[in-house]
């Protein structure tokens, strides 16, 4: 299956999770803000930190559990994201000069901790982004953003993009499939000239589509103002959820796990 086809399939799957589950009872703004808190706390951890990051995985895991998303779905989507961060991170064990003595007495480069830290960061951030959209859904996400005072035109643009990706994407898919069937290539790349022709063709169709949509809007009295969707309701549970996760992120930022662990193992600070 081509990247385009798998994206169309994948995009549909995002919407199917969002409808069910506890997350749909919360205001989308709550989820967006708590995800941001988590990511900011994560990026705030110092270079090479691993322990501080570990508890932050609780946020994406909670979303995973509450939104009933199959873990394998998440794994499949996270894997393609890792290579870039790993590529950058892998240099560290050789570039860094500092060493750390392990309990057994062996000395290793601090770079390994940097690498581990980067990998963990990549996992947490990818999981948070994917689960944010999977648990909230495209539509509610855009409503949440509107509720967070993101300009109305951008929200409309986002919704139009969601809406017409399926239409344009499927037109594209048919053309691409026709090329694949004739070229005999299953995953191959397209020669530039052919790609350009394909895009020109698709561009023309897209323009025609845009002008038909414009007509449809005019026919129903469009005057430049796209009506906003239903207003959102912030409830007590939203405050509790956001305060909880923001507090948790803050505690993680200031090494809560260490405090807890020290208390348990009876070690002095």
């Amino acid at each position: 299956m081509s990247r385009l086809s798998s994206t169309i399939e994948g995009w549909r799957s995002f919407d199917s999770f969002a409808a069910a589950g506890l997350i749909s009872c919360l205001d989308p703004r709550t989820i967006i803000l708590s995800a941001l808190c988590t990511v900011i706390a994560m990026t705030g951890a110092g270079k090479g930190e691993v322990m501080v990051l570990l508890p932050l995985t609780a946020f994406p895991l909670t979303l995973l559990v509450l939104a009933n998303i199959p873990p394998i779905w998440l794994v499949k989507r996270i894997l393609p994201v890792l290579p870039f961060a790993l590529m950058i991170g892998l240099l560290n064990p050789w570039l860094e000069q500092g060493t750390v003595t392990l309990p057994g007495g062996a000395e290793i480069s601090t770079g390994w901790f940097t690498l581990a830290s980067i990998t963990l960061r990549a996992l947490i951030s990818a999981a948070t982004a994917l689960l944010l959209i999977a648990s909230v859904g495209l539509l509610n996400l855009s409503r949440g953003l509107a509720g967070l005072k993101v300009p109305a035109l951008f929200i409309t643009q986002l919704q139009m993009l969601f809406r017409y990706f399926f239409v344009i994407g499927e037109e594209f898919q048919r053309m691409e499939r026709a090329w694949r069937l004739r070229s005999g290539s299953r995953r191959g790349r397209m020669p530039l000239k052919l790609a350009a022709q394909l895009l020109q063709n698709l561009f023309l169709r897209s323009l025609a589509r845009a002008s038909r949509i414009h007509n449809a809007m005019l026919a129903r009295g469009f005057n430049g103002e796209v009506p906003a969707g239903a207003p959102l309701h912030w409830r007590l549970r939203d405050t509790v959820w956001l305060a909880g996760w923001a507090g948790f992120a803050l505690l993680c930022r200031f090494n809560l796990p260490l405090l807890l662990g020290a208390m348990l193992t009876g070690q002095p600070q």
Binding site: S2, R3, L4, T7, L153, T156, Q157, Q159, M160, L161, R163, Y164, F165, V167, I168, G169, F172, E176, M190, A195, L198, L199, L202, F203, S206, L207, R209, A210, S211, I213, H214, M217, V226
Partner: peptide, 17 residues
């Protein structure tokens, strides 16, 4: 508005080629 929306979808799809 429709032009921007549709061209956004166009670019998004085109990125996958």
């Amino acid at each position: 508005i429709p032009l921007m929306g549709v061209l956004g979808a166009f670019v998004f799809a085109a990125q996958m080629i």
